[in-house]
């Protein structure tokens, strides 16, 4: 199945084009958990702080579904 992924801020360097916020598609098996994306993309777990799936913050054990939209963020803040 396919999921759409966006990597933000400093995580952009792990995206296929090296660009932040640009969506790309990944092919994953049914039943894949969110944290499996880390291995596939070579992202150290501790560099990710907030994990969105379809606009909701999720935990690493979230089981992905077809066409899910994933957004990963490093620790960021502002105001």
């Amino acid at each position: 199945m396919r999921v759409r992924v966006k990597l933000f801020a400093t995580l952009g360097m792990y995206a296929p084009g090296g660009e932040s916020a640009k969506p790309f598609v990944m092919e994953v098996d049914q039943g894949t958990r969110l944290n499996a994306l880390l291995d596939k993309l070579d992202i150290p777990e501790e560099s990710v702080r907030v994990k969105f799936v379809n606009g909701r913050a999720r935990k690493w054990d979230y089981v992905l579904e077809p066409d899910d939209e994933v957004g990963l963020f490093p620790p960021i803040g502002g105001g």
């Binding site: 933000f8 801020a9 400093t10 932040s20 916020a21 907030v50 957004g71 963020f73 490093p74 620790p75 960021i76 803040g77 502002g78 105001g79």
Partner: peptide, 13 residues
């Protein structure tokens, strides 16, 4: 985060 992207880093999140 703040020193690199400024507070506008919040737009995407």
């Amino acid at each position: 985060g703040l020193n690199t992207y400024g507070t506008a880093v919040l737009v995407n999140i």
